[in-house]
Amino acid sequence: MFSFTVRSFFQKLVTLFFISIISFLVVYLAPGEPSQIDPLNPKFTVEDLQRFRQEFNLDKPLHEQYYLYYKNLFTGQLKSWKDNQPVLGKIYERFKNSLWLFIVGTLITWCLSFPVGIHAAINRGSVFDRTSTFFAYVLISIPSFFFAYILIIFVVKTFNISVIGMQTFGMSGADSIYQIMDRVWHLVIPSILGALGGIALLSRYVRAQMLEVIHQDYIRTARAKGLSEDQVYYKHGFRNALLPFVTMFGLILPGLIGGSVIIESIFAWPGMGRMGYEAILARDYPIILTINFMAAVLVLIGTFISDLLYMVVDPRIRL
């Protein structure tokens, strides 16, 4: 186990190195560069352009740019080209905001998908099963921004609560209870919308997995022992149905960054996804690259965690 952990850690470091090269190249392969912005502007002289290129190291060979970029990233000196603010500081601010959305959204997704999927599998063909299947397909087929607008209209009109942004302005004088409730409302609506698609997909996976498990021989053995149906399903079935989701659990971490671009944009939520999207539009390479790099790190951490979790839940895997 210890040797696996160490080995896996170093393997992931090597992977990360290659990812850093590829993600760097991908950004540079994309057409356009920041110095090209508005070349028709009369105030934008050739000298200015040269100065910009020099300042952003764009005139240097690629491998040198690569070196300089990652050196600056690790020493914390990397700055956004747009506003000259330190990249890590900017990302940290946004990360805090995204984290809330991510945690609440993930909790909603996982806490709802499992009961719905399991119940549908156990009562296969029942009204509940068919209804949940129908709604799952509705949620998968219709994009979340559509529901987002409907829900915004509904909540704002019915409850007179604003849900755009992270909080309502001009609440600083109000009681703390009102301030907290205001925050909760602003958080819950986008979280639910972000979770909807996930619930639809995940509950289908859970249902399929559970259906497969409950037809296994050991489930029949469990029944033959005289266990009640609940014990059969939730003790003997669920533990086995859970195994594939350990992998998925590791892969939800990257959702922190890219998972909610649309929702963050609709709700004007100052999160990481939106920042990444805006950085791409502005060709702000340091931000794009740093977010790419962080996404890669999160994927690797996620797979590492799921490897470890697998060892805990599946006795057949001892690494």
Partner: peptide, 11 residues
């Protein structure tokens, strides 16, 4: 049961 290989719960 007939199938000892699959009749025990693996976990």
């Amino acid at each position: 049961f007939q199938e000892p290989m699959t009749s025990l719960n693996p976990v």
